[in-house]
Design a protein around this nucleic acid. Structure first.
Lengths: 139, 139
DNA sequence: ATCCTATATTGGACTTTGTCCAAGTCAAGA
DNA sequence: TCTTGACTTGGACAAAGTCCAATATAGGAT
């Protein structure tokens, strides 16, 4: 993630304070923040940053393929900066925490041609649900 | 779906006009309505039915396992009465319509033990995305 | 058949999540 | 340092869904 700003500049992005702060917030392993969580953390470093800029920037990062958008239940979308290593998610149905996981097979291959109904299938989302060790112990 | 009302009565449900109409709307193959779509169709038969009752009833049907709740990216939840035949979904990224699809392999098997991190994994959701024939033709 | 009451329904206020826009600001090339 | 088009801002707006107090009713009891 540290060279994200380099890549963005190479694509003609203006490097504003807001974008830098948002990139910093998204830096790290196993980060799965909602837009509001990103905004809350960004505000700590740049108090005047607006919600609109967070939404704009996250949307642009998703469009560029630098960040993945993950929707689990009907709640807020989460943003996953680990976009360059294909992976899926394992979500705790108790507390909602999320882990990145890797599958043995490409899930696109599990959808046979006769089940595609003429769609140009381009993407697949696989999400596993279960109780995490903490939630199992607590019950 | 026709014996749904029987099962619900066996579970102590009151059979109100509202619940009957909602069950009728959900009857059929490949039905994937949003709550608002269910409401719009229910109103045709029972003009005074409220949005709150639709949300209440759908939530109860989901809790009973009679209907599945499907959340796709950023859109309204959809309700799938085909709860007794395991299947996955194929969603058009253009218009949001949805098809039931069946996979060749059980996706639970694709998550190896060392990627489960001690979770008691119980469920998996697989959703494919692509443009449907209509949306491909229109672009 | 009528009454009774727990359960269901209703409309509207409210919340959450996200989008849109006109006006002001600023990064970076000239 | 100047200029300009891209970026940011706050606030209004919208969609989806929840919550609640008041009202209505299904279905068992009488």
């Amino acid at each position: 993630m540290s060279d994200l700003l380099q890549r963005l500049r190479a694509r003609g992005w203006r490097l504003t304070a807001q974008r830098r702060v948002i990139a910093e917030v998204l830096d790290g392993e196993h980060v799965h923040f909602t837009a509001d969580e990103v905004h809350a953390r960004a505000v700590e470093r740049l108090p005047e940053i607006s919600r609109a800029s967070v939404y704009n920037t996250l949307g642009e990062l998703v469009a560029l393929g630098e960040v993945l958008e993950v929707t689990t239940d009907g709640r807020a979308k989460r943003y996953d900066p680990n976009a360059h290593h294909p992976h899926q998610h394992l979500v705790c149905s108790g507390c909602g925490t999320m882990r990145d996981v890797r599958l043995t097979d490409d899930p696109l291959a599990a959808l046979p041609e006769e089940e595609r109904f003429g769609f140009a299938v381009s993407q697949v989302n696989v999400t596993y649900y279960g109780r995490c060790p903490d939630c199992v112990a607590a019950s």
